[in-house]
Design a protein around this nucleic acid. Structure first.
Lengths: 225, 225
DNA sequence: TTTTATAAAATCATCGATTATATGTCTTGC
DNA sequence: GCAAGACATATAATCGATGATTTTATAAAA
């Protein structure tokens, strides 16, 4: 499993492209605000225009790419205001989602949370190799997704996923070589613990703080406009 | 102005298609859950496959169309659970948005609210002709959009627009020939009044109730699964 | 009768080429 | 010297056709 989203094996060329392009954008390889010249990407990925257009269209709906009629595509620019809104919405929506999940989740769900937490613990975030970095990103994402997976609100989960993508891009680009000033693994453990103890208020608060703290750390290093 | 979304005049064929297809879906002309055979639509709208695919892709990001790899497109099905979630999210998100808008909005914003409210008042909802119906829909939509336009959170506004689209589809299909059991215009006046008086709590409550009430009315006539 | 295998039809995904639009450059007139 | 317009180039938008996949229909076997 290289990507949370590519569940079905029926990998159409467009879908593969979405995954590859998203990864490139998240890594900052395709720089924020940069123009996406169709012909150039087409050449470098060895595909034709049709699947490329479709892929970019899907990335637009994830907020990673912008389309302007007759003027092509570009990577969504970054800004303090945008980051602030993304974090604010994550705080509200993931808060709502985890509250609902605690209400509806069963024992199997608790088990999956512990499983993903364990997997996350096996990954070293600060490790040098890109492969291990990527493994941590995937595990981290799986953990956060699991926390709200029992909320029974598919639309809300999709909103959360979109917002998480957007905030992850900021973190990966701007916090690339910043040592974390806090014990992130401990925060994860605390959140999981509160959820499994069914302490809805505490879990929600911890998750909201967890997200907000990341937001503040990025804002601190984000260059002025 | 036939559509709130087609601000820029640079109408690419895909964009035009998005508008036309969305209208058809909202009217229930393209029935929920119905398969969208590309070749058939292509023929009836007189376009080629490329812009059609792109249009459907954009409608997918609005939640009105579903895409399954290798298996084509279909109009998003309706269900009690989906409607419940849409309404729940509208209540929460529009609530948050209007609160923020009240905090940031200025006198010009108040003016625009009164203007759209006035325009809405000139439209008869129960009128027979489809043209007048459509005029009411547009005015109603413009009014609701204005209420939150000052919130300074573009992503949130986009989420609200998407959700509003989805709930409007339910209302237009299932409440087509149901006389409203309540004084909807009065509710609009009350909401606008509370906002302009800067009564944040009251305005939020009124708006939330307004949305929730519509949701309940639709649920009441929604056929069992 | 039900299930499985096969063949035919329908439909989607992709491509290469064409057309339309925008952008940058170079005149031309003031 | 500068602004406005015309041309050339780059790029996006669209098309028609081809290849790949899924679905439906049909027939044989359990």
């Amino acid at each position: 499993m290289t990507d949370l989203r590519s569940q079905d094996s029926a990998a159409t060329l467009s879908s593969t492209l979405v995954t590859r392009l998203r990864a490139a954008i998240m890594r900052g390889e395709l720089v924020p605000g940069g123009k996406l010249v169709l012909d150039r990407i087409r050449a470098s990925y060895g595909v034709s225009l049709s699947p490329l257009r479709e892929a970019l269209c899907r990335l637009e709906s994830e907020g990673l790419v912008e389309i302007v009629d007759q003027r092509g595509y570009r990577v969504t620019p970054v800004s303090r205001a945008n980051l602030a809104e993304v974090i604010r919405l994550r705080v509200e929506l993931e808060g709502m989602a985890v509250r609902e999940a605690i209400r509806h989740g069963d024992a199997a769900w608790e088990g999956r949370i512990l499983a993903t937490l364990h997997q996350l613990g096996r990954c070293k975030r600060g490790s040098r190799s890109l492969e291990e970095q990527e493994a941590w990103e995937i595990a981290h994402r799986a953990f956060h997704a699991e926390l709200i997976s029992a909320c029974r609100m598919p639309l809300l989960m999709q909103f959360c996923e979109t917002l998480h993508d957007q905030s992850d891009r900021y973190r990966r680009i701007f916090l690339k070589d910043h040592e974390p000033d806090r014990d992130v693994p401990a925060e994860h453990v605390a959140i999981a613990g509160a959820i499994i103890d069914r302490k809805a208020e505490e879990a929600t608060r911890l998750l909201r703080d967890h997200v907000a703290r990341t937001g503040r750390n990025i804002q601190a290093v984000l260059p002025a406009e």
